[in-house]
Design a protein around this nucleic acid. Structure first.
Length: 584
DNA sequence: CACTTGTGTCATTAT
DNA sequence: GAATAATGACACAAG
């Protein structure tokens, strides 16, 4: 086959003719004319280009879907794996779940900017639907407010309306969309706490207002919702924009271009929706005055505790070998649950102790450094713990100095080098875990007391209180674990002492043996000396013996023998043998 | 990355 | 026979 290189530019007529001729020669070889046709090749090139673009587009979509998936996942700090976020029970169980991708696809952004935009949009979306029940008026806005919403949002009537906002045809659709929006919003771990609180506040029909805005009007305003546009429909409530404006104004210096701090975002939301801050008469759809509602006690503890517990993400107090565990994270509870109810009151007993141990480890490792409840537990501290926790304790943690935030360090992130206190800290960690469990079940005395009290006093103490099964099981477990822990420590101590003792004995015995061996050597040498002396004495005595003729006795023929009575005889050696035989 | 050490916990046995 | 202590075995974290 001939090789033809097509120039990038259009061939000249001469070239084309040449190609034509050559092609006619090659036609038998099955080569198509289009091989030499530049325009044909250009078409192919464009087709390829289009395919590439399509492929890129598809890849982008895939990436976005992946991102949306990660929005539903939570990064396990310990393993680095993504684990599914615990689903937060929503308004209705039948809520339609829709992939977050739907809302993400239009804004391919990165990182938390996307995150917050997403949240904002969902928030605005949600409150838009909520709005018909709550009449908010733009006039509530302070005229001198430095926040110029018109700079950021067009007036409702002028706002261009994206198609996605022009729905809300039926109530059921609204409800479903709202539920979906909430679900999406609450699938963001950091905002799960927000979900409950806002939910509760919606129930109370408490919404921010002029004062709230004026209180926070010193905040610099950056539009955190560049992608949010307001619906222009007449039916569209005014509230959504108001709320979004207010909300936006209350988010201090949230710049979408900078790193977004979710914690502070959550805090700001709380500040925004805190009824104490937004203490202005409003009317709900029932016409009831908000001031009346505000007079009702609102358990701020839940807010603070929520924050505190949310710091752990899904923090769970699981315990008891008796198959009892509790899920006390108020943020994970159903929004339908009363906000004022105790955070421990709705404990769910669902995990066995082994499961709990697993989760305990995650709880321990996932302990947020900003966790609120890290006060060393004592009984006094327990009783001193007021049901009302000042908001700033929980919300001002961001402002705390590092030393103030000193907290149990994650086992994997231990800042301090290994010291002898390690055992102590581990013990403290265990105690604090049991303490958490005890507190979760409202056990009214300390773990220390449970473990260390003598039987009688312990029984007396137990009889003073009425405990449910879970509490009893937990107390039993705590006492058993504590006792066993001490027993194990003692056992190991004893074991070590025994080992030391045996080693000492061994050393002693070795010393004794050496001593005896030395003694034996001494005895042996003295024995040898005695033998030697005896030999020389024998020879001396034998040499002095004479027969009748005055001749010496031959030592080869005679020997001296001593009988039992002490007499010494000179015995001929042949005779000596006989004597020996007689003795035998 | 295998090994060691220290610790908590559980199951079982001893008291 | 229940309560408690003792102990072997195991898992886990950290060095």
């Amino acid at each position: 086959m001939m090789e033809i290189e097509l120039p990038p530019a259009k061939q000249s007529q001469q070239d084309m003719d040449l190609i034509d001729i050559l092609w006619k020669q090659d036609i038998d070889l099955g080569v198509g004319r289009e091989v030499f046709d530049y325009s044909q090749r250009q078409k192919e090139y464009e087709l390829e280009k289009q395919k590439k673009l399509e492929q890129e587009h598809q890849e982008q979509l895939l990436k976005e879907q992946e991102k949306a998936l990660y929005a539903h996942l939570q990064l396990d700090e310990e393993t680095g794996e993504f684990i599914p976020v615990q689903p937060v029970p929503m308004v209705a169980a039948a809520a339609v779940t829709q992939p977050v991708t739907s809302s993400l696809q239009s804004k391919p952004e990165v990182g938390q900017e996307l995150y917050i935009d997403e949240c904002m949009k969902i928030l605005a979306d949600t409150f838009q639907y909520e709005a018909p029940q709550m009449n908010f008026h733009q006039t509530a806005m302070a005229p001198n407010s430095p926040i110029d919403t018109s700079q950021n949002f067009l007036p409702t009537e002028q706002q261009p309306v994206p198609e996605s906002w022009q729905n809300t045809t039926t109530n059921t659709e609204n409800v479903q969309d709202m539920e979906r929006a909430w679900e999406e919003l609450l699938s963001i771990p950091e905002l799960q706490c927000l979900g409950n609180q806002i939910e509760s506040l919606i129930d109370l029909s408490l919404y921010p207002n002029q004062e709230a805005m004026s209180e926070t009007s010193n905040y610099m305003f950056h539009n955190p919702l560049p992608n949010i546009e307001k619906p222009a429909e007449d039916t569209a409530p005014v509230f959504s924009s108001d709320f979004v404006d207010t909300f936006a104004s209350n988010v201090p210096t949230v710049n979408t271009n900078s790193t977004f701090n979710v914690e502070s975002f959550c805090d700001d939301i709380f500040t925004l929706i805190d009824p104490k801050v937004t203490n202005v008469p409003l009317t709900d759809n029932c016409g009831q005055s908000f001031t009346e509602l505000l007079n009702e006690p609102v358990d701020i503890t839940d807010l603070s505790l929520c924050k505190a517990f949310n710091g752990n993400s899904p923090t769970e107090f699981n315990d008891s070998d008796s198959g009892i565990s509790i899920n006390t994270s108020p943020c994970a509870t159903s929004p339908g649950q009363s906000m004022g109810s105790s955070i421990y009151g709705d404990a769910h007993y669902s995990y066995s102790d082994s499961e709990m141990e697993d989760m305990d480890s995650t709880t321990e490792t996932a302990e947020n450094p900003k966790e609120t409840f890290t006060v060393p537990f004592t009984e006094d501290a327990f009783y001193a713990l007021s049901p009302i926790v000042p908001l700033d304790i929980c919300f001002d943690l961001e402002a705390q100095t590092p030393s103030e935030k000193e907290l149990p360090v994650k086992p994997g992130q231990s800042k301090t080098p290994f010291t002898k206190d390690k055992a102590l800290s581990r013990q403290e960690a265990r105690f604090s875990r049991d303490e958490q469990r005890a507190r979760a079940l409202k056990v009214p005395f300390s773990v220390d007391k449970i473990v260390n009290l003598p039987v009688d006093e312990f029984n007396a103490l137990m009889s003073k209180h009425q405990f449910n099964e879970a509490q009893l099981a937990l107390i039993r477990d705590i006492r058993r674990r504590g006792k066993n822990k001490v027993a194990a420590q003692n056992c190991r101590k004893r074991k070590m002492e025994n080992i030391v003792e045996l080693e000492t004995d061994l050393d002693k015995l070795k010393y004794e043996k050496e001593k005896l061996l030395a003694e034996k050597g001494e005895y042996n040498s003295s024995l040898q000396l005695l033998k030697k002396q005896l030999g020389s004495l024998y020879m001396e005595v034998f040499s002095k013996l004479r027969d009748e003729d005055g001749n010496k006795y031959s030592p080869q023929e005679y020997s001296l023998q001593q009988t039992k009575d002490g007499n010494v005889f000179l015995v001929p050696k042949a005779k000596k043998i006989e004597i020996k035989k007689e003795q035998v």
